[in-house]
């Protein structure tokens, strides 16, 4: 960069003059490239690629449904899941003297239960899609739990599930079993 054209002496003078007139077309790009990469880094770090995803929910119509219009499901093809506080989830089958058990949202928790139930239903009726999951959430449950459980439905491929209100009957079922278990201990 810091070169000087020293004119050569002697008879070659004419020739050297001609050569020095040949201007170099190369421009020093270092600064520009530096700037370019700086901006790239900036935009790379500020860009967010992951757009939020949307989980579509279709709720049934809320209008008064006559009792005879309600879908009846067989007890043998049902699974009730109750979401409560502190990321605990209770599950049971049927209504009369159900065995209520609790688990969590981990991979080994509720997912295993759902998959196991799917197999049972498949054995009993030949099609695992006959399983209907009834999801009930207590008011104290976190929204995250609801999303998690809807997610489990997508992961395990449960075709039919319903979100229901948590009513007193449900709390009785849980209280009866869980309360008894606590009493035995």
């Amino acid at each position: 960069m810091a070169e000087m054209n020293v004119p050569e002496s002697g008879g070659k003078k004419k020739h050297a003059k001609k050569r020095s007139k040949k201007m170099s077309t190369r421009v020093d790009l270092t600064a520009m490239v530096d700037l370019g990469f700086l901006l790239i880094t900036f935009f790379m770090l500020t860009t967010t690629f992951n757009k939020p995803q949307a989980m579509e929910v279709n709720m049934p119509e809320k209008d008064d449904v006559k009792d005879e219009d309600r879908t009846k499901i067989k007890e043998s093809e049902a699974l009730s899941i109750v979401l409560v506080e502190n990321d605990v989830v209770y599950f049971y089958v049927g209504l009369e003297n159900p065995m209520v058990d609790s688990t969590n949202f981990s991979k080994e928790g509720i997912r295993k239960i759902i998959l196991g139930r799917q197999q049972e239903v498949e054995k009993a009726s030949g099609n695992k899609d006959n399983l209907t999951v009834l999801i009930k959430a207590k008011n104290k449950a976190k929204y995250k739990n609801m999303v998690d459980i809807l997610d489990e439905m997508a992961i395990t491929g449960v075709k039919r599930y319903a979100i229901l209100d948590f009513v007193k009957a449900d709390s009785m079922i849980i209280y009866n079993t869980v309360g008894k278990a606590a009493g035995q201990k």
């Binding site: 992951n50 929910v57 709720m59």
Partner: peptide, 20 residues
């Protein structure tokens, strides 16, 4: 409230997680 207004289809916005 949505359902009372006959809006039965809506989206819940979530972030992405890898499908197991």
């Amino acid at each position: 409230i949505l359902q009372k207004r006959n809006i039965n289809k809506f989206n819940l916005i979530t972030s992405t997680r890898q499908k197991p």
